[in-house]
Simulated scan of single mutants.
Amino acid sequence: MIFYTILLIFTSLLLFILSLIHIYWAFGGLWPGDSKQDLIDKVFGKGNQFPSPISCIFVASSLLIFSLLPILWMNQKSEWINPQILIWVRICMAFVSFIFFIRGVLGYLPFLTKHWKPIFVHYTKRIYNPLCLFLGFAFLMMIILG
């Protein structure tokens, strides 16, 4: 049971941090790049135009909402959560799991990676894909164990 609680908290915290990074990018932050083009190469893999601040805020908002799902799920036995809401939380968690699994798997497909910058392929295979697969697995485990 302690593993389950740690998984819920860690997943929620990780998604919250990813949300903050997207907000940072929306306001012009360059990390992990040294310039705008370097950031584009490392985070998006192709092109020369960074997504709009509205796009970054949209992704940040989505990640923030995703980060709240484990917290709601962790408190499912509380009196203040309606059981009908938990059905929707479970559906949302399944959807989020699916999104992260798809993103995690697609980054390993050679017909996609051949169109990306080498630095992005490096980050995708070593960081982004494993992170997405972990998140997909974490949400799936929450549903199964919860």
Results as ranks from 00 to 15, higher is better:
Y4I: 02
Y4N: 06
I9W: 13
I9C: 01
L13I: 15
L13E: 04
L14I: 06
L15G: 00
I23L: 15
I23P: 01
W25H: 14
W25C: 03
A26C: 05
F27L: 13
F27N: 10
G28V: 07
L30M: 12
P32C: 02
G33W: 10
G33N: 05
D34A: 09
S35I: 04
S35H: 03
L39T: 14
D41I: 01
K42H: 11
K42D: 06
F44H: 12
F44P: 00
K46N: 08
K46M: 15
G47H: 07
G47I: 10
N48Y: 08
Q49L: 13
Q49H: 15
P51L: 10
S52G: 05
P53H: 10
P53C: 08
P53Y: 12
P53F: 15
I54M: 14
I54C: 04
I54V: 13
S55N: 11
F58P: 00
A60Q: 02
I65R: 05
I65A: 13
L68F: 14
L68A: 14
L69F: 15
L69V: 09
I71V: 15
I71R: 09
M74R: 14
M74P: 01
N75V: 04
Q76S: 13
Q76K: 15
Q84S: 14
I85G: 00
L86S: 09
I87R: 04
I87K: 11
W88V: 12
W88A: 09
W88Q: 12
V89T: 04
V89C: 01
R90K: 15
I91P: 00
A94Q: 12
A94Y: 12
S97L: 04
F98K: 06
F98V: 12
F100T: 00
F101R: 05
V105K: 03
L106A: 10
G107P: 01
Y108C: 06
F111Y: 13
F111R: 11
L112Q: 11
K114V: 14
H115E: 14
K117Y: 13
K117A: 08
P118W: 08
I119N: 03
F120Q: 10
F120C: 05
H122I: 02
H122N: 13
H122Q: 11
Y123E: 05
T124I: 02
K125D: 02
R126A: 12
Y128A: 06
P130E: 13
C132Q: 07
C132I: 02
L135D: 06
A138R: 01
I143S: 08
I143Q: 11
I144A: 09
I144M: 13
L145H: 12
